[in-house]
Structures are given as C-alpha cells and as structure tokens.
C-alpha cells in the first residue's frame, strides 16, 4: 500500500466517520438525560435530510431549507417526547426504548409516503471540487461535516460545564431523583435534551445528503453506526461520541484497504466487541453505571 492510498483510506474513513460522529452526538444527548437509547435517531437524521430536500426542491434557498428542516425535525421530536416519552418517564428505560422503536417504524414509513421511495440529492454547500492533499483527495462537504461536528461538541462541552442548565442535565444523568430533590425539573431537562438532539440530527441529515444522498430507509444504517460509535466512545460523552465515530469510520476505511470491503463492517464490530469486553463502559465512558 502506498502512502497516498493509506491517506485516501483515512480520508474516506474520516468522511464516513464524521457522519457517524454527528449521528452519535444525537444519541449522546438523549442518553445523558434519560439513560435511553433512541432507536429513532437514524430516522431523525433521515427526516432532516429529506425535509431539506423537499423544501429546497419546492424552490426555497438552501439556507432557508436548512432552517426549515431543523424546525420540522424539532417539532417532530418535541411532539414525540411529549406524547410518548413523557408518560413513560416513570416506567423504566425499556418501555421508552420500545416507544422509540415504534417511532422509527412510523417515521420511516411516513417519510416513504411523503418523499417517495427513491434516493434524493442536495447540492454541496461549497461546490464539488475536491481538495487534494499529498495526492489524496477530500470532498469539501466532508469539511462542513467535520467542522460542524467540532463546533457542536465544543458548544455542548461549554453548555454542560459552564451553564446552570447544563449542570442540571448532568445531574439528571447521574441521579434523576437527587436532581429532582435539588429543584431540577426532570421532565424539562428531558424535553430540552430531545429538542437539542433533534436539531443536531436534522443538521446532520442536511449536511450528509450532498455526500451520500438520502432515502427513507437510510436511517437504519445511520442509526446502527451512530449507536455503535456512541457505545465505542462511551455512552453519554460527546467527545467520546466523536472519537468513537471517527475511529469507527477509519477502521472501516482501513478494513477495506487491508482486508476486504465485504468484511469491513464485521471488522468494525469485532473491534467494538473487544473494546466492550475489555472496557465495558467504552473508551471515554465513566464508571459503569447499572442501568435498570
């Protein structure tokens, strides 16, 4: 393998990895507040992408379509949280997880009925001319994804560490009962987390679509990879989600280069399992907390 090829595999991994990272961030936020894995996370990304395409094809300029898609997904997420998750807050994580499974089925089918069964494209934000570095090439849209991922992580870190609300969210993650006793409104924290997670997922969807297009069924793979990335990095840690996502992407890229594309996902999952066996709380996870 030449150096150029190696670099290209890494760039390729970075493209997929930053997409996984952005999806994983959405998981992290909801997990932090509720200890819940949202099985509809991939569908929120898909909905974000498809809504933007729909609005853009209706004649709106791209930035407006972007904001419109954010609003749509935000509304869907908040509605879902209020109608389905809120009544289940006292009823344990598993019931909530099943509600998100139901939501993922419903969202996928609704998207199919609204946006059709074929893949839809969106123009790249800043053109298609690739950036060449040492003979390898990078899609400029990837930089958008990477840049916004970093920006979101930074914002989240500031939010969690510097603001009162952020500290309240973290308190809920550690011990909801104690947080409630300290005057934190648990259900508001959950609502906030869902809303922000929805917005991030929508943004992810809009930014991914120019790279890989979007179909109503794209959410399944994105959700799986996002969950894997989040678990690899340690659930609940935004930095971990990003590191996990990029690591997963680069593992896959190198898996293609060194072994075979058919086995690249298997390689990624084997390594994920090994990491979990050796460090059950993920790379960046805190002490293992037993989840009921």
């Amino acid at each position: 393998m030449t150096f150029e090829q190696l670099l290209q595999y890494i760039f390729s991994g970075l493209t997929s990895g930053s997409i996984y990272a952005l999806t994983a961030l959405g998981f992290t936020l909801i997990y932090n507040a509720t200890g819940l894995i949202n099985f509809a996370q991939g569908e929120l990304v898909m909905l974000g992408g498809l809504s933007a395409v729909g609005l853009y094809q209706a004649g709106l300029p791209l930035p407006v379509a972007f904001l419109g898609s954010l609003t749509i997904v935000l509304i869907v997420t908040v509605l879902f949280q209020q109608l389905a998750i809120r009544p289940l807050l006292s009823r344990g994580v598993l019931a909530q997880v099943i509600a998100t499974v139901g939501a993922s089925l419903a969202l996928r089918t609704a998207a199919m009925m609204i946006f059709g069964r074929e893949a839809l494209p969106l123009p790249a934000f800043s053109g298609d001319t690739p950036i060449r570095i040492f003979g390898a090439s990078l899609n400029p849209q990837t930089l958008w994804v990477v840049g916004s991922t970093l920006l979101i992580v930074l914002a989240l870190q500031l939010f969690y560490r510097r603001t009162l609300t952020g500290k309240a969210v973290r308190a809920c993650a550690v011990n909801p009962l104690a947080a409630r006793l300290m005057g934190v409104s648990y259900s508001n924290v959950v609502l906030l987390s869902f809303a922000v997670s929805g917005a991030i997922s929508a943004a992810a969807g809009v930014m991914i679509t120019p790279i890989s297009f979007m179909t109503y069924s794209s959410g399944a793979l994105l959700g799986l990879k996002g969950f894997a990335a989040a678990a690899l990095g340690g659930l609940g840690n935004p930095v971990g989600a990003v590191v996990g996502g990029v690591a997963l992407g680069i593992l896959e890229g190198l898996g293609v280069g060194l072994v075979s594309s058919g086995y690249k996902d298997a390689i990624a999952f084997v390594i994920l399992l090994l990491v979990l066996f050796l460090r059950p709380q993920g790379i960046f996870g805190g002490k293992a907390v037993e989840q009921e």
């Binding site: 969950f227 894997a228 994920l272 399992l273 993920g282 989840q291």
Partner: peptide, 12 residues
C-alpha cells in the same frame, strides 16, 4: 456487560 452495552454487544 449491562444495559445498553449488552444491547450493543448482542447487536454487534
């Protein structure tokens, strides 16, 4: 493994 990590591992 416990909870979601068990879910992730079995899923993998």
């Amino acid at each position: 493994l416990k909870g979601h990590y068990l879910a992730m591992a079995t899923m993998g």
